[in-house]
Design a protein around this nucleic acid. Structure first.
Length: 876
RNA sequence: GGGGUUGUAGCUCAGAUGGUUAGAGUGCCUCGUUGACAUCGAGGAGGUCACAGAUUCGAGUUCUGUCAGCCCCACCA
């Protein structure tokens, strides 16, 4: 066994062993309560980033914990076809080859995307493996595999038949760069510094003009009206008159609509129904023509000399021309929210086009009901509100995308009779006219449409499979807060609609991983840390431990290399503690179970601590407080087991008493083995590697039972924490005193103890050797008197003296003790004032009052001891 | 314009149901190479828990307000 833990040497082998042995796999028929998590499918051609690493780690912890608990545990893996992202990637690649998708044609292009998928599709799965993710890889799915595609078809057709999917001409968010429509949530609004142009629109009869204000002057080419508020006194008399659109010469009406805000700008709004969602609505209300002046690529069309200009170049030109024509009144600075494409960040252009939509209202209602009834729970709870608020204000979902990579919409148009047919199976003959001239709708579905079905499509839907019956609803969904709207809410709606039950009982939400400065990790900033690199350097366990500790559910966390190192140090500490045990086991080929078992104080203490740690870890896992659970383990292993317990076994291990030796080895092994099992969900590789070397363990740790308090009930019988703490406090005090005098911590010092609390006397005498060992003291002397030339300290129940004739500066010692005394007196005073407060004594629970009294007694004892001591020193 | 969230040691963060003299990691200072571990051990400095009120015997923890930061949602041109 090497002196340092080297994860690189073992992780791959262990993972392969687990996978080969089928440890990740389960069946619907297996024993145990079903516990299932479906993975948030990463982009099939993407690569692992820190966000995945966090997401996977949390899931793997829950999965491994439940598997060890004996549940029938399934972690369903898979990938997402990621329509726009993947298509854009391949298109970029084609550009490098000097071609494009239009040149290739749809069929050939799709072939290329599938090839691309074959080439890069496994990368992410293998990267997940390096993290230790215990997914049931035999069941790996893809959103465009046959089963998921069948699910998509079935759901689409049923929703269409029920009137919940419809096709319509609407104004939608359009990305001129991606050249497709987007749903509302794919648009990111950002406030930008822009301008407000005030323009003059003259009346046709020459009786002056109306001044309008706009942030987008170029759209004036498509204006078909000007609107004012019906109650606006400034314009009341003018409503109904005709205006002449500058530069164009078109006659447009001045009309009244209550949408207009009298206070904003001039109170008059130019109306461009084809290029603004609000204007579109007003246009419908007032029967205005829709004049389209911007095309799908953001270029001007059908506008004379402006035709072909990019929308922003056109803006400059228009403003110049308006100014030249005397139509520009003024330009103001104006901050306003502008929509950008969620993927490429291009400014969104609202355009009128034919799209497919899902009617959301009736689907949203049960999804809201699900959280109100408790069928679905968010962890942390605050995300419930965000979810409900979004669903309550939901608008129809535009699901068609003008892409080629994705689930093509199953709708066919007949060129003979003009009818449309929506069908689960491909249509070759028009059911209306029996014509053969059918064209399939070219659009594909929003990627999130298939993701919405993920919890049941991966379990076999539309087939009625054993898995679906066993594991649906799944137990927990683990995901970031950034996709609650995109994904979580839609899964809930679809799950309720098509399975009649929520897709998961709980949603465990986590935050984003940020860089050291708290910035979001992003490609463009180049500040992302590659988890694969972290794993190569420090091992998966260190990365996992770093990701899960030091933060709290739902909150963002920062990535620090120093925190990875700290986790690595922890791994190394465990490695070396294990090495210590293994070395000693080897040197003592003793029976592991001593007979009779003769536990001493330190054994009972560590077993008690193990039992309490088990309870704490379990409680925190149950509450999804994974970081707290990990912290408890860290403290137990490092501070209790390594710092104290291991040190205390050395006397026995290096001594001659075979039975004592055997007991120590037994307890060491028992505690370490249990701690490894407790830690396994967090650090799977290290714990497996070590446990395989232990004599009292067989089989993989991942299939071993998770520790319970009951497991240690026979060993951890009595609570010895109080006396143990007295001993440890004594140790700390002696160490302090030595440091005070500049004595090397490893240099042995003589120590005299004066026990003031009789109930401690016997135990302290019996275990005084613990103090020798931990504090590097000469064998302890017990005395009834206070040695004169000595440093002194007090802890509950005893006084401590380090006799150092000749080395003690009495005045300095008096001053030091005086300071100590002051602190104690203050503490005692605050306690006694609290206890003399009648309302405290009468209203606080008896146990609290009792505890405070005990503290006061102890403090008073110490005060008295210090006072005596100071008097004694003064009299010298 | 709504909603959420954060403000605790130099830095990053923990602190269930209100009740130890408020903790950890990291950084800093002083010591330390007898064999589990220098990826370590011992000790230390460092915090009026953003501010102001309220509730309570008791508030880092509950409530209200203020200030500061971050995030999400939203069709004022």
């Amino acid at each position: 066994m090497n002196k340092t833990y080297e994860p690189q040497r073992i992780e791959r082998d262990l993972y392969e062993q687990w996978e080969r042995d089928g440890n990740f796999h389960t069946t619907a028929e297996a024993a145990g309560e079903p516990y299932c998590i479906v993975i948030p499918p990463p982009n099939v051609t993407g690569q692992l980033h820190m966000g995945h690493a966090l997401d996977e780690t949390l899931q793997d912890i829950l999965i491994r914990w439940h598997r060890m608990k004996g549940d029938n545990t399934l972690w369903m893996p898979g990938t997402d076809h990621a329509g726009i992202a993947t298509q854009a990637r391949v298109e970029e690649h084609l550009r490098g080859e000097g071609t494009n998708r239009y040149e290739l044609g749809r069929t050939e292009f799709l072939k290329r995307v599938w090839q691309w998928k074959e080439q890069y599709g496994n990368r992410i799965s293998y990267q997940l493996r390096t993290l230790g993710s215990s997914c049931d890889w035999e069941r790996e799915r893809f959103t465009m595999d046959a089963g998921c595609s069948a699910a998509v078809r079935k759901v689409f057709v049923q929703l269409y038949n029920e009137g919940l999917i419809y096709r319509g001409t609407r104004i939608t968010n359009w990305c001129p760069h991606c050249n497709t429509a987007l749903s509302d949530i794919e648009v990111e609004h950002e406030t930008e510094a822009g301008h407000l142009w005030h323009l003059r629109y003259p009346f046709a009869d020459g009786s002056g003009y109306v001044e309008v204000a706009t942030t987008r002057p170029e759209t004036m080419l498509g204006d078909t009206g000007v609107a004012v508020h019906p109650d606006d006194e400034r314009y009341k008399a003018l409503v109904g008159k005709t205006l002449i659109l500058p530069l164009v010469g078109r006659e447009i009406p001045l009309f009244a609509d209550s949408y207009v805000d009298k206070e904003f700008g001039t109170g008059a709004v130019k109306v461009t129904p084809a290029h603004d969602p609000n204007d579109y609505e007003m246009g419908l209300r007032h029967d205005l023509p829709q004049v389209k002046v911007i095309d799908n690529l953001g270029k001007m069309i059908d506008v004379g000399k402006y035709t072909g200009l990019d929308r922003y170049d056109c803006r400059k030109q228009i403003v110049a021309d308006l100014e030249a024509g005397g139509y520009l009144v003024k330009v103001e600075n104006h901050e306003h929210a502008v929509g950008h494409c969620h993927r490429c960040h291009t400014t969104i252009e609202p355009l009128i086009s034919d799209q497919w939509f899902v009617k959301m209202e009736s689907l949203a209602k049960p999804a809201i009901e699900a959280v109100k009834s408790g069928a679905l729970e968010f962890v942390p709870e605050r995300f419930t509100k965000i979810y409900v608020n979004w669903l309550e204000n939901i608008r129809d979902w535009c699901i068609s995308r003008q892409l080629w990579w994705g689930h093509q919409i199953p709708a066919w148009y007949c060129d003979d009779c003009g009818e449309m047919t929506v069908s689960e199976t491909d249509v070759e003959t028009c059911p209306h006219c029996h014509g053969k001239h059918l064209r399939r709708d070219e659009d594909v579905l929003d990627t999130w449409f298939s993701s919405a079905l993920w919890p049941f499509s991966t379990l076999g839907y539309p087939q009625d499979t054993a898995e679906l019956r066993k594991f649906y609803p799944t137990s927990v969904l683990v995901t970031g807060y950034d996709i609650i709207f995109f994904w979580v809410s839609r899964m809930v709606m679809m799950g309720l609609k098509f399975r009649g039950e929520v897709p998961f009982r709980k949603v465990f939400i986590h935050g984003l991983v940020r860089d050291e400065q708290g910035r979001k990790m992003s490609k463009s900033l180049g500040n992302g840390v590659d988890p694969v690199e972290v794993i190569e350097k420090y091992g998966a366990d260190s990365l996992r431990f770093m990701l899960v500790t030091g933060n709290t559910p739902g909150n963002d966390l920062r990535f620090y290399w120093s925190r990875v190192e700290s986790a690595r140090n922890f791994a190394n500490k465990i490695w070396n503690a294990s090495r210590f045990l293994l070395i000693n086991l080897e040197e003592n080929s003793l029976s592991l179970v001593p007979s009779p078992l003769s536990l001493e104080l330190s054994d009972r203490w560590i077993l008690q601590r193990l039992s309490k740690t088990t309870a704490g870890v379990t409680r925190n896992l149950e509450r999804f407080e994974l970081g707290e659970a990990a912290r408890l383990l860290y403290e137990f292993i490092w501070f209790n087991f390594c710092d104290y317990y291991i040190e205390l076994t050395k006397a026995r291990l290096y001594g001659d008493d075979a039975q004592a030796k055997s007991t120590a080895l037994f307890v060491l092994t028992t505690v370490l083995e249990a701690a490894l099992r407790l830690l396994h969900p967090f650090m799977p590789f290290l714990t497996e590697a070590i446990r395989q070397k232990l004599p009292n363990a067989r089989g993989s740790i991942m299939l071993a039972p998770y520790p319970t308090v009951e497991e240690f009930a026979d060993l951890a019988t009595d609570d010895v924490e109080e006396i143990a703490n007295v001993i440890f406090n004594t140790v700390r005090t002696i160490r302090n005193l030595k440091a005070e005098l500049g004595i090397d911590s490893r240099k042995k010092a003589a120590v005299v103890l004066k026990v003031t609390r009789p109930e401690y006397a016997e135990t302290l005498r019996a275990y005084a050797r613990y103090i020798d060992v931990l504090a590097f003291a000469e064998p302890i002397t017990f005395a009834e008197t206070k040695p004169e030339h000595a440093l002194s300290g007090v802890v509950d129940g005893l006084e401590i003296y380090l006799p150092l004739e000749g080395l003690i500066d009495v005045d300095k010692e008096i001053a030091r003790l005086g300071k100590e005394l002051d602190k104690l007196r203050k503490f005692a005073a605050s306690l006694s004032s609290k206890l003399s407060n009648e309302r405290f004594v009468s209203k606080a629970p008896a146990s609290v009052v009792e505890a405070e009294r005990a503290k006061l007694t102890a403090a008073d004892e110490k005060v008295a001891a210090l006072e005596q001591r100071i008097e004694q020193l003064k009299s010298l």
